[in-house]
Amino acid sequence: MLSTPVVPPHLTPEAFPAERFVLDCRGHRLDCRPGLPQGAHVMGILNVTPDSFYDGGRYTTVEAAVRRATEMVSEGAAVIDVGGASSRPRGTVYGEGARPLSPEEEIDRVRPVIEALAEHLPGVPISIDTYHPEVARAALEAGASLVNDITGLRLFPETAAVAAAFGAPLIVMHSLGRPGAMPHAHTYTDVVADVAGVLRAAVERAEAAGVRHVVVDPGFGFGKTPEENLRLLEATDRLLALERPVLVGVSRKSTIGAVLGTKTDPVPPSERLFGSLGATAVAVLRGATLVRTHDVRPTVELLRGLAAAAGWRAVADG
């Protein structure tokens, strides 16, 4: 069973055990202890889908995907997260939800991209954004280094065994329902405690299957109101009590649109960059060390400024 330690008042690397916070991504080392000089690592989003809410259709060819991944790495991305199936929810904000894909269709989209990325960017960890164990296996065979399960093992717990077999870290995210049909109304007793409890159970399930390194993601925007999303963001440090690295993905989400506009008239995804950066800063100051984003360069620059201002990194002379 996981312990429930008190979160230290100062986020310093020494306060967090390296055996849990320094990830071995199949040979790629990724130190995810809070308070490191870089503040956090950036995970660049690479959707090879025609229907993702922000960048759908831009990178559906292998050539376009490799160009975009190379660009993100040059901008400072530490990880590339490849997704072949959109999780765009059904509802008033995005209309029809994403079309469900079979594992075979998803594999056909992601495998050639991951093979090409592994060849062109051999020093960069590649994450596969999937909850299907068959897709995870095919991606890991093609050269992926991490598995990012947005259902937190709810739908296919066997995905954990696949990650374990390849020695890959597993990201478990809190969400409700099936991707593409996420419910928008749910009553939480205490959204932070409830989400933390679900993530705790997912971590235990993953480790029971043999996964060595697990990352937790509160699932900003998945089955939560804007107020609940913001409460989770503010309480990022409470999730560190799970003693696992925390990933946040706020990039251009509908809650950001509601904050910058209103719930009934949110600003469009194209105008949500600065709101996304502000939310990211709050999460990182509270201990998140992986940031999943569409906008790599602005996020990297934000993190550099934040790290210097917070005293994590000295400004170089000259």
Rank of each mutant, 00 (worst) to 15 (best):
L2A: 02
L2M: 15
S3L: 13
V6C: 09
V7Q: 04
P9F: 04
P9H: 13
L11V: 09
P13M: 09
E14Q: 15
E14P: 06
A15P: 04
F16Y: 11
A18G: 07
F21Y: 15
L23N: 07
D24V: 07
L30D: 12
C32R: 05
R33N: 06
A40P: 10
H41K: 00
H41F: 11
H41N: 00
V42P: 06
I45S: 00
N47S: 01
V62H: 10
E63T: 09
A64E: 14
A65Y: 15
R67C: 04
R67N: 03
R68L: 00
A69F: 13
T70D: 09
E71F: 10
V73I: 07
E75W: 15
A77L: 12
V82K: 07
G84M: 09
S86R: 06
S86N: 03
R88D: 04
G91L: 09
G91K: 01
G91F: 10
G97Q: 01
A98C: 05
I107G: 07
R111Y: 00
V113D: 07
I114L: 11
E115G: 01
A116I: 09
L117E: 04
A118M: 13
E119Q: 15
H120L: 00
H120N: 00
P125V: 08
D129V: 13
T130W: 08
E141N: 02
E141F: 01
A144F: 07
L146E: 03
L146I: 13
V147K: 13
I150E: 02
G152D: 08
L153Q: 02
L155Q: 04
F156C: 07
P157N: 09
P157V: 11
A160T: 11
V162F: 05
V162H: 14
A165P: 00
F166P: 04
G167D: 12
I171N: 00
V172F: 13
S175I: 12
G177Q: 10
G180Y: 12
A185S: 03
T189P: 00
T189V: 13
T189E: 15
A196E: 14
V198E: 12
V198W: 06
L199A: 14
A201E: 15
E207I: 06
G210A: 04
G210M: 04
R212Q: 13
V215H: 08
D217E: 08
G219R: 11
F220R: 07
F222W: 05
G223C: 10
K224L: 00
E234W: 11
E234L: 08
T236M: 04
L240I: 01
L242Y: 11
P245N: 10
V248Q: 01
S254D: 14
S254G: 05
I256Y: 10
G257A: 00
A258C: 02
V259F: 03
D265P: 01
P266S: 11
P268C: 02
P269R: 06
P269G: 01
S270P: 03
E271Y: 08
L273V: 11
S276Y: 12
G278I: 05
A279P: 02
A288L: 05
L290H: 12
T293N: 05
H294D: 02
D295F: 13
P298N: 08
E301G: 01
L302R: 07
G305Q: 13
A310L: 03
A310H: 14
G311A: 05
A314M: 10
A316L: 12
D317I: 01
